[in-house]
């Protein structure tokens, strides 16, 4: 009924053909076995990267601590490696200053943006603003560095005439702008995952949008917001180019945002960039500072993940 004459003349038996082809498919069987091994090796590379980072940082910093002492490194208040002073505290306060300033900028702006996008904006507005905001996260940091010295610092100088050409304030403000999209985006995700029924419940009781946002949504999304902030702190700690260009290279143990400072990251650039020879004490000190930086950022990342995980269990 369904076949036609032409076909009946040259009948083909597909299963038989498949059987005949089986021997030629044997090559495939070998590939079938090799491919997962190759894929696994690639996946293992990510573990090797972590091992490599830990190994390099540990090996060189242990050499450093063997020479200079671990205790004097973490409690020393003077950092001048070229004169033999290896007290890391000025670099840590420098990093801390940048982090605090940037979070003071980014948290209110980021949180307000997140509340606006999640609670007030229409879908269309959200879909325009959110990607545009994320462009900020894609701007290379060297461009932000240029923006800080060539635009922000001159403006600050007209407000605070005594401010240094290089200063923590300018760098901190710009780092803050850089991490706004991170806080805004992640906080908005957290707010979006608050069930609509909670909002509707509060609105039905006669609450305004503002009351819903501040009394219902933000508390419910609180741990998500905290996780986003902690992740942003980690980014600010690790940020290198903006502080290298705009905050200077003077390791001062100070909390005055108007003077030049040096962060952990900025020292690594300075220490490596010069004619630092392999195996010199400055070379090793770079790794000790790198290790310090790595510990701080890793702690922040793990903390953020921990908070986010707890948050997920609540729903």
């Amino acid at each position: 009924m369904m076949g036609n004459i032409k076909e009946d003349k040259q009948k083909i038996d597909v299963q038989q053909m498949i059987n005949e082809k089986k021997s030629t498919q044997n090559n495939l069987k070998i590939i079938e076995k090799i491919v997962p091994v190759f894929l696994f090796l690639c996946a293992a590379l990510s573990i090797l990267t972590t091992v490599g980072i830990l190994f390099t940082l540990l090996r060189e910093s242990i050499t450093f601590f063997g020479e200079q002492g671990f205790f004097s490194f973490i409690t020393g208040t003077k950092w001048n490696p070229w004169a033999g002073d290896f007290g890391v505290l000025p670099l840590i306060t420098g990093t801390l200053q940048i982090t605090v300033i940037s979070i003071l900028v980014a948290l209110p702006i980021g949180l307000a943006s997140a509340i606006f996008l999640s609670e007030y904006a229409s879908d269309k507005v959200r879909r325009t603003i959110k990607p545009t905001l994320e462009v900020l996260a894609g701007v290379p940091t060297v461009v932000y560095g240029y923006f800080a010295v060539s635009f922000v610092t001159p403006i600050l100088r007209s407000i605070f005439p005594e401010i240094g050409i290089f200063n923590a304030l300018s760098a901190g403000l710009v780092v803050g702008i850089m991490i706004v999209p991170m806080i805004a985006s992640l906080s908005e995700d957290a707010m979006n995952s608050v069930p609509t029924s909670l909002r509707e419940g509060a609105l039905a009781l006669g609450s305004t949008r503002l009351e819903v946002a501040l009394k219902v949504v933000v508390p419910a999304a609180f741990s998500g917001i905290v996780a986003a902030t902690v992740l942003a702190i980690s980014r600010a700690i690790g940020e290198t180019m903006i502080v290298t260009i705009a905050a200077g290279a003077s390791p001062n143990l100070t909390f005055d945002p108007l003077v030049s400072i040096q962060t952990l990251t900025a020292f690594i650039v300075q220490g490596i960039k010069g004619d630092t020879t392999f195996g010199s004490m400055i070379y090793y000190s770079v790794y000790a500072v790198g290790m310090t930086l790595f510990v701080f950022t890793l702690a922040m990342n793990l903390l953020s993940q921990y908070i986010a995980r707890k948050f997920r269990e609540e729903y």
Binding site: E7, I12, V14, I18, K22, T24
Partner: peptide, 16 residues
């Protein structure tokens, strides 16, 4: 996937 690549044979199989 079972190794039949000949265009004419495939045409026949598809039509059938």
């Amino acid at each position: 996937i079972h190794g039949i690549r000949d265009k004419k044979t495939l045409d026949q199989i598809v039509e059938k």
